[in-house]
Structures are given as structure tokens and as C-alpha cells.
Design a binder for these strands. Structure first.
Lengths: 360, 360
DNA sequence: TTGAAAGCGCTAACAT
DNA sequence: ATGTTAGCGCTTTCAA
């Protein structure tokens, strides 16, 4: 491409020589500021370091700051990174940023990081099996830490993170080996809230469309559902695990549930909203009405699930807080590498809508 | 906080001294590789530089690569950034990553950047008025370029970007001054597609809920609507501009449109999907049925608008391509700074659903 | 083809 | 409180 551009430049860009006159301004370095303020560069460095106030006399600081402002000085972070080993950059790995649970999490991370003067590098990594080279590149970039929002259980990636000595925090999945700090939403509580709500609405035959069982949330929510049913002395009206957290998988799983039960359930607790929407499809196809015949509940409170028909009852995890708490854990560890790997469990909230209206 | 942690460390973290034994492995530098391979560091640098193949003899390259692999060498990008001025990092400014149009754009940008070995720094910036300090920080980070997905017209930010000499590309809004390259979806075509579709469905009194008129897409779509109507020889059945691209603003605008028209329109072209959903609310409140009394069309094809009742007819801009095209423009300019600032216009696609079913 | 040497811009230990 | 000095890890002339 570079070759083509060169070759055709004279035809495509007649103003080339004119435009190249506008050369970018030469960058202002700490030397320029030192010279302008009549002090040594190290004095400038000290004066501009917010962590050490009072190490330079007030009038010198003033002179330096005025010179810096006048010249438009901007400290070169690449240089300070080389010297200090801190880039003020954290990496975040998500499976797919277009999955609507991640943007609010990312926003929470970014807000916290920005407040601490750091930037966020994002990388979409479809599966944690493909994460290794991306993490390698992040380490080459000297990121100060990494937040993993990718999901799989017993992940060799965790071993790699620990072996390489990176500061890392997991989100949306507790590290089952307990070696990395993590932030999660309480999946057991979530399922308990839903089951109890269905019971209060007069539902008795409660089934579960579970998530993929190689993903922590898939397992966690299934266990939560089973526990909640046991606590209330109820037998499950059926459990089918989905292949994926998708609408298609939900449709398939719901169809299977209907096919294998003699009597259909009167309610179904879904591992997430997309699966619940798939359940909507399968129920419609089977001629069953929501919530008349079957109540449906989801998880995540995705955008717009309040607008579909009927509006979906769901569980809302505190996504934004999940993000900033993870960032908080990471920054804590940046300051003190000895902190032990804790798990922070946040409370989700039940959002009741039409899809679980009480039986008539 | 650091103080508290120190103070309480002995109570909270009894294993502190034990854990600190696990010190991170000392980083492997180019020196270590050179020593292991029995060559000079500059030879290692050359051997590992993919841009200059053949500048080092094959057997030396092999020795170096094997040593590098054995030691687990990872080039320190902070160091090479200092030396070369290239960080392999681009910055992206979005108003709000939780707005569902941005994740696919970001994904497109990230995919292209990753393929070129670069990372993406994201920053949420509510308005372009607040962008200046963020851009300053990005420049301090020595980003190779910036993609602006923030929207406002005649923005002083553009002047700043040009003055500072950063490589920048705008997305979702053409720079009206034509000084920065940009990638946009064809808003005029979008409105034309919608208007023609409504006409084909037998609608005659077509109104428009316009976007904020200080935002390029708000203006562009309004002009597109007006042009399309003129082209077909039709008079507008009313235009109301929304304060924001939100459901609330859409509800308010639709209510106003109904209040000020003697006879309600038989269809309304909305500047985006959220506004269309607001129109749904207002129409329901006014006792008007969609699409029986009024057809409604949106723009963006947000997640789940196919699932609401009735499913929303909308326009789908190629968001992912918008993103990677912007990245492509940016990288082109990284290689050749003389390229003139072009605008790339991509074709959106009409997605017909129930909300614009033909009149009975 | 390889080695030697300089230096990117900054910070921090040490000296004054 | 300020200056001196060394050097972070890499790339890139220049010389051999």
C-alpha cells in the first residue's frame, strides 16, 4: 500500500509539497523548560511531581510552571515509563465488547482509571485460549496491570498471569483456585431472588435454563437455582444447559425442555436475558403464553428488555460497580503488592416486570 | 488508604512476609539475549526487526531467536517508544461507551489496530468541550493517533488537534471544515430509504423527529429527510427537533408533534432508535396504534429493537466497518503524513420490520 | 554482516 | 533546596 501511495502521489495529491510545509511543532522537552526557567532539569522534574510537594521552593515552582505553560510542555510518558517502569496504563480483556454486559463494566473501569490518571487498553479476546498472545503484547507494553473479564473455569491463563508476575484482577468470575483477586455479582443470591419471586407469584413447577457449564457464571447460577429450590423444599421442574449465552441456544434449550417434560413447567429461570429471549421464541412456537402459561425470568437487565412484550423480569447486577471495584482492587495492589487475593461479592437486584406476573 | 493498609497489615494479612517471597521474575532485556547468543545488542535489535529481513545472517538470526525464546524475551515497548517515537497505541474518544452504537465501532477499530500490532486506548468523554484535557493526556502518552467519535459541530477541538500535529480521524461526523479525514454513514441516503419505504406502504403524511441540531447527524438526517420529501414532491407533516438522542426526548418531541398538528401524521421518521422508542411511548399514551394509525421508523438498528412490539423498522449503518475504516485512514496517515483529509461515506441498509407495515 | 557508541526524555540516588 | 550524574532498554547512525 505504501508503494501504491508513493507511485500515485503525484496524480492524487497535487498539493503534496504545499501541505508538507505544515510540519508538526517540535515537541517541548523538560530541557527546554529547565532552560527557560533557568534551573536544572532535575529541579523541573521535582517541581512538576505532584507526589513530592515542598521539595522545591515556591518561587522556583512558580517560575517552572509558568515556563512550562508558556512553552506548552507535556511530560513524555514513554520516557518516564522507561525510567520508572510505570506506564499508567491498564489492560482489559473482554470476550466481546458488543455483548451489552461489558460496556457498563468497561465504563466503570475507565472512570476509575481516569480518576487515577491511567488509561485503559482494551482487547477483544474471543476465548481465554486465545488470550495468551494478547497478554504477552500487553506485558510488552508494560501495562501496570490487567483486568480479565474473560470467562472459563480452571484457566491456564491464570497460571500464566501469576507466573509472569503481572498484577491481575478477574471480573465476573471468581478465580476458583483463589489465587487472583476478583469481583463478582452474587449469582446464588440472584437465583434465590428469582425463585422466591416466582413462588410468591404462585408458581410451583420451576425449571432452569442453565448457562454453559464450563463457564463460572453458568455453574454458579445453576447451583444457586438448585440451592434456592432445596431451601424451599421444591423439586426442580427440569434443568437444561445451553451451549452458549445466546438467543439461539435459549430457543433450543427451551424446546428441549418442553419436549422432555410430560407437563410443561409453569415458570423458567434463565441464566441470562438472551437465553430468556430464546425461551420466548420457543414458547411462542409451542403456543404457550407468557406469563399466562409460563413465567420467564432472565439475568443482566440488558438494554431494552423492559420494552419487549411482555417486559422481561430479570436480575440487574451492578455492572458499573463491578468495573470500578475491579479497578480499585488493581490499583490497591499496584501500591502494595503484598495484599492477599480477595474476592468482592456485589449484590444484584431483582427487577420485576410483566413476564412473571402472578398466576390468575 | 495506603496508610490504613500499612497500619492494619499485621491484623489483616498475617501471611504478608511469606507472600512477599514470591517476587516477580526479573525482566529479560535485549542485553540478556545478546549475551546468551554471543552477539552485540544491536545485532539482536536488527535480527528481531521484522521490517528489515536479511540484514542479519540466517544462522545468527536462528541463534538469537532461540536464545530469545529460551529466556522468554519480550521487547520493552516503552523503551522502543522513547527511541522511535512510536508507541503502537491509538486513542479513541467516545461520548459514552454504553451507547450501543459505539461498541461495534470500537470493535472494528480494535480489530484493525490489533491486526497492525497496535492497542486502543479508550476514553469516555461526555462532551467535546471536556475532551481537551483527555487529548492532552493521550498526547503525553505519545499515542500514534486519535480517533474522535465525539460529536458536535464546528468544534474547537478540531483546531486543537490540527495545531498539535496529531494524526486524527473523525468518525460518525464529517468534519465540516474538511480539515480532518472522516468516516460517516450516509445519512441522506438513510432518510431517503425510509421515506421511500413509507411511501410504498401507502403513507402520505410523513413527519420527522429530528436529532439535536448542534450535532452533525442531527442536521444531516433532517436535511436528508427534507431532501427526500422534496424529491417526491411531498410537504412535510411536521418536524420537531429533540433535545437529545434519548427515549425521553423522543417521547416529548412526539407529544409535541401530536399537540401541534391538527391531524396527526400517518408516519414518523425518527433520527434514531431511542427516539423512536420514545415515540412509541407517546403514541401509546395518545391512543394511537403502531403501525395501524402511525408508522414509526428509527435509525441504528440497536440490539433488541427487532424484539419489541411492534418490531422497529430502522436503518442499519455499517458500524463495524465505520470503525475499521477509520482505523485504516489513521494508519495510512501514520505511514504517509502528506495524505489529504478525505471523507469516506459508507452505505447504510434499510431493515424493514412491523412498525411500518403498509396501511390496510 | 556485525560491533561500537550515542542518545531518546525522564527520574532518582547522591552530592553539595 | 538545587545541581550532578547515571542510566532505564531500545534503535540507529557510523565505522570496521
Amino acid at each position: 500500500m505504501a508503494y501504491l501511495q508513493q507511485t500515485f502521489a503525484r496524480f492524487l495529491m497535487p498539493k503534496k509539497s504545499t501541505r508538507s510545509d505544515a510540519k508538526p511543532p517540535a515537541p517541548v522537552t523538560i530541557r527546554d523548560v529547565a532552560r527557560a526557567a533557568g534551573v536544572h532539569v532535575s529541579t523541573v522534574s521535582r517541581a512538576l511531581d505532584p507526589r513530592r510537594p515542598g521539595s522545591v521552593s515556591a518561587e522556583v515552582v512558580a517560575a517552572i510552571e509558568s515556563a512550562a505553560r508558556r512553552l506548552g510542555y507535556r511530560a513524555n510518558r514513554a520516557a518516564s515509563a522507561l525510567r520508572t517502569g510505570r506506564t499508567h496504563t491498564i489492560g482489559v480483556l473482554v470476550p466481546d465488547i458488543t455483548n451489552p454486559v461489558f460496556p457498563p463494566i468497561l465504563k466503570g473501569i475507565e472512570a476509575y482509571a481516569a480518576a487515577r490518571g491511567s488509561f485503559v487498553l482494551i482487547a477483544n479476546v474471543a476465548s481465554s485460549a486465545m488470550a495468551r498472545p494478547v497478554v504477552e503484547r500487553m506485558l510488552a507494553h508494560q501495562v501496570d496491570g490487567v483486568i480479565l473479564a474473560i470467562t472459563s473455569r480452571e484457566d491456564p491463563l491464570v497460571d500464566f498471569m501469576i507466573a509472569s508476575g503481572v498484577n491481575a484482577v478477574m471480573i465476573n468470575r471468581a478465580d476458583e483456585s483463589g489465587r487472583l483477586p476478583s469481583v463478582v455479582s452474587d449469582d446464588r443470591l440472584a437465583m434465590k431472588l428469582v425463585v422466591d419471586h416466582l413462588l410468591q407469584g404462585g408458581r410451583k413447577r420451576i425449571a432452569h435454563l442453565a448457562g454453559p457449564q464450563n463457564v463460572p457464571t453458568g455453574v454458579g447460577r445453576r447451583l444457586g437455582y438448585e440451592q434456592a429450590m432445596r431451601d424451599r423444599g421444591l423439586a426442580s421442574a427440569g434443568i437444561v444447559a445451553c451451549d452458549a449465552y445466546s438467543r439461539d441456544a435459549g430457543r433450543v434449550a427451551m424446546a428441549q425442555l418442553l419436549a422432555t417434560s410430560k407437563k410443561p413447567p409453569d415458570s423458567v429461570v434463565c441464566c441470562n436475558d438472551l437465553v430468556a429471549l430464546g425461551a420466548y421464541d420457543a414458547l411462542a412456537r409451542a403456543g404457550l403464553r407468557i406469563p399466562g402459561d409460563v413465567a420467564v425470568a432472565g439475568h443482566n437487565d440488558m438494554l431494552l428488555v423492559d420494552l419487549i412484550s411482555p417486559p422481561l423480569t430479570t436480575v440487574r447486577p451492578p455492572h458499573g460497580e463491578l468495573g470500578w471495584r475491579a479497578a480499585q482492587l488493581l490499583f490497591e495492589r499496584l501500591e502494595d503488592r503484598q495484599l492477599s487475593p480477595i474476592t468482592v461479592v456485589l449484590r444484584p437486584e431483582l427487577v420485576v416486570r410483566g413476564s412473571t406476573a402472578p398466576v390468575a
